[in-house]
Structure formats: C-alpha cells, structure tokens
C-alpha cells in the first residue's frame, strides 16, 4: 500500500493540479474513460468473440461460449 501511495504521489507531482472548480471540461460525457452503459454492453462481445485478445479494463466479468 505504501508503494502505491508513493507511486501516486510521484505521478501527481509531475502534473498540473486541477482544482475541483476547474473540472468543468473534465466532466463532459466525451471525456469519460468508459463508454455509456448501453454502448459498453453492446460493444462487449463484438470484437472479443472474433479475436484472441481480451481484457484490460475490468475484472469480475464472466465469459461467453462464443463459438
């Protein structure tokens, strides 16, 4: 845990500090890192069912027998 806090502190030190009142643009939907729920679930199986690679974004999701 201490290592993680140190990593976070080092990362934070190298970047501009953005105060809560300056976060207007960051809150825009287009700035979201994840898709909207409706789009995310629809997109979930399109590529992974045809490709060998998967994952990277979240854990705890089940698989599908996509054959």
């Amino acid at each position: 845990m201490r290592t993680l806090v140190l990593v976070a502190a080092l990362l934070a030190a190298g970047c501009t500090h953005v105060a809560p009142y300056e976060r207007g643009y960051l809150a825009r939907p287009a700035m979201a890192l994840e898709e909207s729920q409706g789009m995310a679930h629809a997109m979930e199986k399109i590529y992974p069912s045809k490709e060998a690679a998967s994952g990277g974004a979240a854990v705890g999701g089940g698989g599908c027998g996509c054959n």
């Binding site: 500090h17 979240a58 854990v59």
Partner: peptide
C-alpha cells in the same frame, strides 16, 4: 459462466489521481 469481483478505488490529491485495484 459465473463470476465475481472486488474492487478498491482510492482518490488522491483532490481526485487528480485515482488508484484502482481489482480481483
């Protein structure tokens, strides 16, 4: 398929930095 997960998310520095751990 049945799956379960746990996630911990911690904000630092006025939410400028967020750490996420998941299993």
């Amino acid at each position: 398929s049945k799956a379960g997960g746990l996630e911990a998310r911690r904000d630092f520095n006025d939410k400028n930095t967020t750490l996420t751990l998941g299993y």
